[in-house]
């Protein structure tokens, strides 16, 4: 393929998004190093929160604090992380149900090796020192015994 000519091709739309009253509060709390969830009319706590109850479509406007630790409900192992993923070294993707939450969130677990991962294990959030109000302010979860 060495005879194929190559040229850079950058395609970009410079959107500015408003994150709105619910996602915006979640991201603002993350920037402050805190985790919050959305409380539905039926009392379930959705983390990360959406503006609506995923089951009923009802509006969610009450945000409540949740724990920064929780339980892994499922996981997989990434031996070769791709550019842009939360960690540059091998890590686990996991769904983590935080203490006080009724739904699980997707993030990375910095476990070192797959033998340290197990469904049902407890993990704790590690925040980045420099935070800007995005989901990446949460750098990764750590196995609780190691943190």
């Amino acid at each position: 393929m060495s005879d194929v000519m190559r040229a850079p091709y950058v395609l970009e739309y410079g959107y500015r998004r408003s994150t709105g009253p619910v996602i915006g509060q979640f991201l603002t709390a993350l920037r402050d190093g805190r985790l919050v969830g959305g409380k539905t009319a039926r009392g379930r706590v959705i983390v990360p929160p959406t503006e609506y109850d995923p089951e009923t479509g009802d509006a969610v406007d009450e945000l409540v604090p949740v724990g920064d630790a929780g339980v892994v409900t499922t996981w997989t192992w990434v031996a070769e992380p791709a550019p842009g993923q939360p960690l540059a070294r091998p890590f686990a993707w996991a769904l983590v149900k935080l203490d006080g939450a009724d739904t699980a969130m997707l993030h990375a677990v910095d476990a070192g090796e797959p033998s340290r991962m197990k469904t049902g294990m407890r993990v704790r959030a590690r925040f980045r020192a420099e935070r800007s109000g995005t989901i990446l302010d949460l750098e990764a979860f750590l196995p609780e015994q190691a943190s």
Binding site: L27, P48, T76, G84, W93, L106, H107
Partner: peptide
């Protein structure tokens, strides 16, 4: 675009979670 896409999880990984 807020909670999942910025983490860039590939489709194989999401399949593996399920």
């Amino acid at each position: 675009p807020y909670y999942m896409a910025p983490l860039r999880p590939d489709a194989l990984s999401l399949g593996a979670l399920a």
